[in-house]
Design a protein around this nucleic acid. Sequence first.
DNA 1: CATTGCAGGATTGTTGAACAATCCTCTACG
DNA 2: CGTAGAGGATTGTTCAACAATCCTGCAATG
Lengths: 232, 232
Amino acid sequence: MTATDKWMDLLANDRLLLDRASTAERVADILRQRVIDGALTPGTQLSEEGVGKALAVSRNTLREAFRLLVHERLVVHEFHRGVFVRVLSVDDVVDLYRIRRLLETSSVQRAAGAPKALVEAVSEAVAEGERAARDERWWDVGTANMRFHEALVALACSPRANETMRQVLAELRLAFHVMSRPREFHEPYLGLNREIADLLAAASWRTAAERLDAYFDTAETQLVEGYGSYRA
Amino acid sequence: MTATDKWMDLLANDRLLLDRASTAERVADILRQRVIDGALTPGTQLSEEGVGKALAVSRNTLREAFRLLVHERLVVHEFHRGVFVRVLSVDDVVDLYRIRRLLETSSVQRAAGAPKALVEAVSEAVAEGERAARDERWWDVGTANMRFHEALVALACSPRANETMRQVLAELRLAFHVMSRPREFHEPYLGLNREIADLLAAASWRTAAERLDAYFDTAETQLVEGYGSYRA
DNA sequence: CATTGCAGGATTGTTGAACAATCCTCTACG
DNA sequence: CGTAGAGGATTGTTCAACAATCCTGCAATG
């Protein structure tokens, strides 16, 4: 029966990829990707006619897709005016760091019972960031940094927490796009991430949590002034 | 100029209440309320034709509303089959308690800088629960209990954390509806809530967080067996 | 000069109908 | 007993139409 169980798992994966995908969701996927990778910059309007014609979907289907993205806060919907790629305010960025602090420090604090593979995922994300930094791929450094923090929350073994964290990080991408110096912004955190990952690997949960808490103290203030001066 | 600033704030509030409300959002509001108060029990299908005719909205508008509720996890959408009021599994309930623990304990831990009014809101929620218990309004006891925990997260002063918590608690309503004994389920927590509120009022953040953590240890195990046996 | 009022055009909000795709049920057949 | 298929019901998606609202520019007014 263990052999069939393996097959079942594989089938379950494939079902998600192949089977279920309404047009609205796929449209949302595309737009989400474009917002995250910066092709759609904050502030640009997504007109129903324009996007609908470009993707060859009807206005109704498109509106369903817009609802999804609005709920994820990647776009804003102004009544009778349309949807726009979100422009994060400084308050938004502060709030994003605040909820990150709640989720991440708490997850690290009680990571004692987490599966070993999840702890290794943290170290792997750090290593990926270090590789990207060596090659001066600063955008990838930012991506790896996010994967690192996502891996921290994953220690809590809560699908909903993971989902919330994913959304928070996607929103933060909106802030990073208006930063003009990705290197100066992302590079300083490489050492901190490594330090925290090593503490986790050594099962020093409490120390890691304290280190992380200190990280947020500095990151938040640093970011506020950075975001205020770098934005378009 | 400070006088006009005051006016502006008031106007901004009113704009949210009076101005913006698309049909889809109002439909979602209605359905959300019906799911939360139990009129729509978990598992029931929300057919597009039925609900659309009942609320006198078109299918397209209704589908937009459904998308919102799907994203809030109050209903599930099965491709080519329809939307159904969500039936929480035991795993779901465990996960909900897990993310609650992350958000709540972390919020309480760093509540030192929270505005006094937010701390008082915690005590007020406890008092409301005690009043409801005295009158044997057990459903209201559950509502007050949720308001209590919502108030705990509010200490973190993060709109996004508040929103996440609201959603989590709305989901938990789905579990409470299949419990047959609201009194036995809600009453034991009254004393714990009071204890935590008093610790917060005394600025004993650390002790309060530890007490809350212990609360989750017992609540989670207690709930799993309770949910397994009480469900319809 | 600043402000107000008012077309006109463009965009969104909402509806209804239509057709395709899929699922469910029931029946008939091997 | 199992299964293959027909038929009906529901959902997925598009299209066209109209109402409601917003934006722009211009004229009128003080």
